[in-house]
């Protein structure tokens, strides 16, 4: 009876190993050698994480600085050389900001409700309309679908300067200048989200849609119950983008009435108040950042973690 040390392969009833063909043994050995060799060394790990940490610091710095500044009393804001962390943190800047807000000509809640309205309607419309179109372009043989999509991608490459004047003329024509729609409608029609959605939906297995069709689901139902839940990361990303751009919309060129101005516009007026308002300006920065960051924090786990679930095993 020949027992081999550390042998874990197949054995006969009496304990002797079954000899495998030499080729298999060799393969097993090379596989083991490969497995044994650690893929990452300690030093590599260290370098990778220190790189990540460095980059992360660079990315987080503006945010940290903005928050720290908003907590500094006025004298610390002008200290030279400047310090990053406040020595005597205070919420004075925020309470000052509230006082200034209370003195505004139009009640401040008006600005807030304007921006909330614009953000909610614009984002909602953008996501729905963009996703519907993306679904058709990704999963149908839509006539002229491909050239149309190429046209959309091409249109993405223009900057605001190209369309600024014509867009304004158009808005005067359809009488939406100085209404919320002047901000909302172009945002709803923004092609960037549609582009993202289409890219994601292409990865959705056709079998999923076909099986739903065989089960007798109507198009609308397939869209809402099959397609949309499966591309959740995509439309969450779209929501982040849309909320961000609408929340930060100043739109001072298309809105004149004070009562229709946006929050960011009003806050910038406070900021523009000069040196005496430096503290409040810092507070404004933090206040304006809150909503986009909150949107991201609320949806980031969804976006980043659940992207893999496609509902089908290939």
């Amino acid at each position: 009876m020949t027992t081999v040390k550390h042998y874990k392969g197949p054995v006969r009833a009496d304990g002797t190993p079954i000899e495998l063909p030499k080729k298999v043994l060799r393969l097993q050995q090379t596989a083991k050698a490969k497995n044994k060799k650690p893929n990452r060394s300690r030093l590599g790990d260290f370098l990778i994480y220190s790189l990540l940490a460095l980059v992360a610091c660079a990315m987080a710095f503006p945010l940290v600085f903005a928050i720290c500044s908003s907590l500094k009393p006025l004298d610390e804001l002008f200290r030279f050389p400047p310090t990053l962390f406040p020595r005597q943190p205070t919420f004075d800047n925020f309470s000052d900001l509230l006082v200034t807000m209370g003195q505004s000509w139009v009640p401040f809640s008006r600005y807030i409700s304007n921006t909330v309205f614009i953000t909610v309607i614009g984002t909602f419309g953008n996501v729905i309309i963009g996703s519907l179109a993306a679904y058709v372009l990704a999963k149908y043989n839509f006539p002229l679908g491909k050239p149309f999509f190429n046209l959309v991608v091409t249109a993405l490459m223009f900057n605001g300067y190209v369309t600024a004047i014509p867009n304004y003329l158009l808005m005067t024509k359809i009488n939406i200048v100085d209404t919320y729609w002047a901000i909302v409608l172009p945002a709803v029609a923004a092609p960037m989200g549609m582009f993202l959605m289409k890219q994601f939906m292409e990865g959705l297995p056709m079998a999923l849609i076909e099986s739903a069709k065989i089960d007798g689901a109507k198009e609308m139902r397939i869209f809402w119950q099959i397609v949309m839940p499966n591309v959740k990361p995509a439309w969450l990303t779209m929501i982040i983008f849309s909320v961000q751009s609408l929340w930060n919309a100043k739109a001072s060129t298309v809105i004149y009435s004070e009562a229709k101005k946006t929050l960011v516009y009003a806050l910038q007026q406070i900021q523009a108040g000069g040196i005496a308002r430096t503290g409040q300006a810092a507070a404004v920065t933090v206040v304006v950042m809150l909503v986009p960051i909150a949107t991201f924090v609320l949806s980031q786990s969804q976006i980043l973690e659940t992207m893999a679930t496609s509902g089908l095993k290939d």
């Binding site: 987080a60 503006p62 900021q271």
Partner: peptide, 23 residues
Amino acid sequence: AIFFLPVILSSGVLVNLETDNTL
């Protein structure tokens, strides 16, 4: 989350604000 911060910061307020603000 940290690595996504620039998206919020750069496309948002900070860039708009930094041009006309002493702070």
